[in-house]
Simulated assay, not measured.
Amino acid sequence: MRGDYYWIAVPDRWNGTLVVHAHGGPRTGAPQPDDPLDDLNRFAMTVREGYAWAGSTYRRGGYGVRMAAEDTDTLRQLFWDSFGRPRRTLLHGQSWGGNVAAKAAELYARDAEGKVVWDGVVLTSGVLAGGTRAYGFRADLRAVYQYVCHNHPAPDEPQYPLWQGLPEGSRMTRADLAERVRTCTGVGLPEAQRTPVQKRNLADILAVTGVEEDELVAHLAWGTFLFRDMVQRRLDGLNPFSNIDRVYAGSHDDAALNAGVQRFAADPMGVARLAYDADLSGLIVAPTLTIHGKADPTAFVGNEAVYRDQVAAAGRSELLVQTFTDERSHSALHAPEYVALFQAMSAWLDEGRKPTAASVAALCETAKARYGQACAFDVDFKP
């Protein structure tokens, strides 16, 4: 079933459980009708295993966790209205959609009559540190990159506070940004074609920020185009980021870096507005199961530690189980690992068997023959 901006798939042998998917990003372009098809293809194993699946775009591109959470709950209601209430309804969030799903689980856990809406929550590679803690490293990256490269903005362009992402009226594209990164660091060129200065510039940026080479352009793009959307459209131009007290280390001359880097202080109202939109309370009321690659280069595994501590502070740790794999991947882990998550959640809800990292890993071992992919769980890891 396809709508203007959503896709619903119900298998012939439906097990009675619906998976409502909150997609990642944020996608800064205008929503396209076929966007949910990419998400369905990525998580097609859910339908293959007998789950119904529903996914949508959000009402507009760009940042807005509460907006996306409301749209996700609206999709759930659309399915219920069209097909009847399923036996179980699971909420699934991937990447930034993990933040969206965790927020939706807090805001829409029960309906106006107190009845449960989301039976369980599955969060994969989630940005679970919330808005005020998940994006500061990209503000640091903008500051360090600009100190090293001096080309974003270039000296002959209008200068602006880097936390704005871009100034009003800018027509920069991602390709333009990639070219500037290539000029300064050689990223995109074979290593043999990079100059000594480019190699030193790249080494300094990566060492100080912890960003990996093949993710440098992507993280700078989020710190450019997403920051513009977040600050200008969500925060009324207020700054939610600060590097006033940051001590940068790892470059060939840290003293010069710390003396010369652009500094900026967060506006308290900017922080408050971002926290209201995107931070998480930890007050979960539905069983929640997560998975994260230990070497995730996009949403760092430390997001899980922040979320674990928030849930513990709220006194809800008994409802949270976290699992980790040895993968260096973000957008797609191994298919049988996802299968194991949803099977473990179903058993938790239907039979009261709270999963452990070891029990999820065992389910993966059973499922891997069907998908021809390995299981990479590290059952002893804790961030």
Rank of each mutant, 00 (worst) to 15 (best):
R13P: 00
L319D: 03
A30S: 15
D140F: 06
R171L: 11
L363Y: 03
R2M: 13
H21M: 12
P167K: 04
D34H: 08
L78M: 09
G372A: 07
S359I: 14
G114C: 05
T185D: 12
G55M: 08
V217Y: 06
M1T: 09
A143P: 02
E304P: 07
N243L: 04
V100Q: 04
A178V: 01
A218H: 14
E179R: 10
L166M: 13
A367Y: 01
F43P: 01
L91P: 06
V117D: 02
D34Y: 14
L166W: 03
W7N: 00
S242N: 04
V148A: 12
A340K: 07
A175T: 13
L40Y: 15
P297E: 05
G210Y: 13
T366C: 08
R142T: 10
G131I: 05
L341W: 11
A369M: 00
V261T: 03
R59Q: 07
L75D: 03
M45I: 10
P268L: 09
G169H: 06
A104L: 02
T74P: 01
W14C: 05
Y6F: 13
N201K: 13
G372Q: 09
E113K: 14
W7E: 13
E318C: 00
P196F: 05
A249L: 05
K115R: 15
A313W: 00
V65I: 14
V122A: 03
Q94P: 09
S242R: 06
R2V: 06
A357P: 06
F79S: 12
S95V: 06
G169P: 02
F381V: 04
K294D: 01
G61L: 04
R194I: 05
D73L: 06
Y5W: 09
P240M: 02
L216P: 00
R59Y: 09
A272C: 07
T288E: 00
V197S: 11
Q310I: 02
N303F: 03
T325Y: 04
R200A: 14
D279N: 09
A134Q: 08
S170C: 13
D378A: 15
D253A: 10
L206F: 09
A9M: 10
T290P: 02
Y371E: 10
H23E: 05
T57F: 05
R42L: 08
D277A: 07
W96K: 08
H23A: 09
H292E: 12
N303K: 11
N239K: 01
V47G: 09
